Simulated scan of single mutants.
Amino acid sequence: MIKQDLITLIEKKRAELIQVAITNGLSSSIAIRYSQELDNLLNEYNRIYIKKVQTAGF
């Protein structure tokens, strides 16, 4: 997946989550599902594009 495509998906899912949360509340089942989908996209972005920080001595 191209980096910009993933960023676009993240932004779209974030906007959808905001709308769902406004309409149905943050604790609604659909808001929770959208939040989990956004988390998965963000985790994928971090896994692919963010270099892991290595800490010495840990």
Rank of each mutant, 00 (worst) to 15 (best):
A31M: 09
G57Q: 12
E44C: 03
I48H: 07
K3M: 05
L9Y: 09
N24G: 03
Q4D: 10
D39K: 01
G25D: 04
K12D: 10
N40M: 06
E11V: 00
I32D: 06
I30L: 12
A56S: 15
A31E: 06
A31Y: 05
S28I: 04
A56T: 14
E11K: 13
L41K: 00
I30G: 02
S35T: 04
K52G: 06
Q54D: 14
K51D: 10
I2K: 10
D39E: 09
A56N: 14
L6N: 03
A56H: 13
G57Y: 12
N46I: 05
A31H: 06
N46F: 04
A21S: 15
K13Y: 04
K52F: 04
A31G: 09
A15V: 05
L17I: 02
V20I: 15
I30W: 00
L17F: 03
S29L: 12
Q36S: 05
L38M: 03
Y49N: 08
E44M: 05
N24R: 14
M1A: 08
N24K: 13
Q54P: 06
T8D: 12
R33K: 14
L17P: 03
K3A: 00
N46V: 04
M1G: 11
R47M: 10
I10F: 01
L17A: 02
I32H: 08
L38R: 01
K51I: 05
E11L: 07
Q36C: 00
Y34L: 12
A56M: 14
G57E: 13
L38H: 03
E16H: 09
F58Q: 15
I48E: 11
I10R: 05
Q54I: 15
K51E: 13
Q54H: 13
A21G: 09
I22Y: 09
I30Y: 06
I22C: 08
T23R: 15
I48M: 14
S35F: 05
I32W: 08
V20S: 04
T55F: 12
I7H: 01
V20K: 02
V53A: 13
G57C: 08
Q4E: 12
K12E: 12
A56F: 13
I22Q: 14
D5F: 00
I18K: 07
M1D: 01
E37L: 03
F58T: 15
Y45P: 01
T55H: 13
K52S: 13
Y34A: 07
D39I: 00
E11R: 11
L9M: 10
Y49P: 07
S28C: 11
K13C: 11
